[in-house]
Design a protein around this nucleic acid. Structure first.
Lengths: 127, 127, 127, 127
DNA sequence: GTGGTCTAGACCACT
DNA sequence: GTGGTCTAGACCACC
């Protein structure tokens, strides 16, 4: 099951961000392969019952990052894989995200094990 | 290393949040102790070359979370530790922070083990 | 009587607090229900002839207490009831509110019974 | 024991306000009688280990409200009792204070009995 | 259109 | 001097 979208309108994360994340994740995990086409803007908008502009916005962000290519009349497809960030940059981003997490939860009085378990659950939910 | 601020105005994270984050970090690591005073609103604003209102906003945020107490004419102080939130609310916040982390790193192509290790390191730095 | 605002600019209570207070009151009395939207920041600011920032501040306060949820582009909504604070914190807040009341009325020369009766009436109005 | 001051520097209420309240209360309950003198500004400041300006400020407020009179070289003394507010005004203030209390605690999930008990305790503490 | 952030600058309350 | 509030007006992100 290549691309299944799950949108949570109540989330603090904007809808277009959720779409971007899910597509990025599918690309990263090989769920979709270079050359495959994405659903059309209008089709996906109808499927998710959201505004087409929101889908277009998500696709534009992916195109900006070089993850998809779009050509008039043909649709949007996954571009050849290229790693956008250097390993150092990726490590830096990971460390920053981890630091932010630790800082957010530092005052919630949970044990190290509880924190790690919550991370595992969050990772698994995205799979 | 008591309180060293580094602000990135171009970041997607608002400036006042960056300040909140760094002070929380200092409290968590014991860099500042209950009873100590923070730099005055105006002094920190001048130091960081930002508007005093932005600093005031950060301090207000910390006060609302019970991390600092402020009194007019005297300044802002690190307050005694106390748990403000219900267990449900703390669980909610933990899950939200974990979700955010997972979404931030989803496309960085790290393994589950690498992600967990980065979290462990970030937690340990606080201890 | 869904949401009627009355602002007293000369009051010792800041305007944003007056707004917070009146919305809390409406929520407590059931005047507004979860899911309902509040007036937009700009609309309410115009209606009350105050600065939009002041309204935004009031809404931010309510959001931090979990009473409303806001999402960009959509507006601000009354959220589902949930208990944010720990029992200790709630006790602390109750004691503080009672202390404030006692200090406000201490010099009004009412008997203990009269004071208690006024509280009873105020509580019952919320029910 | 006519006038015993108890100051809480950590309170959100300013020190000068605490002094004003305690003197007002003593006047209201007959703890001090018209004609009695208050401690001098400097004496009270020394006793409470606070800034003389703070005491002066409190006395100024009481004088403004007509509760004390001060004359150069003689000191500050309790003025002849006169009710500053009409009964209606006092009732209005009481109702307003009660309404504020009810609004503050509406979301803390306490029973009517718990609320009333907290008020009783707060009143008793002031006695 | 919506809310969120930031600046500049003012005024007030408090010590 | 300290923090707290408010205004005016700008720019951004999102739908």
């Amino acid at each position: 099951m290549a691309l299944q979208f799950r949108i949570n309108p109540g989330s603090s994360q904007p809808i277009y961000r959720q779409i971007v994340d899910q597509i990025r994740h599918s690309i990263a995990t090989g769920g979709v392969q270079p050359g495959e086409t994405l659903p059309s803007v209008r089709a996906l908008a109808e499927q998710l019952v959201i505004n087409p502009n929101t889908v277009a916005r998500a696709y534009a962000e992916l195109a900006r990052d070089g993850l998809v290519d779009s050509s008039q009349g043909l649709g949007v497809f996954i571009s050849e894989r290229r790693q956008l960030y250097s390993l150092d940059e990726r490590k830096r981003r990971l460390a920053e995200a981890a630091r932010l997490f630790a800082s957010e939860v530092a005052f919630l009085d949970f044990t190290r094990e509880q924190l790690l378990k919550s991370i595992e659950q969050a990772i698994d939910k995205k799979k």
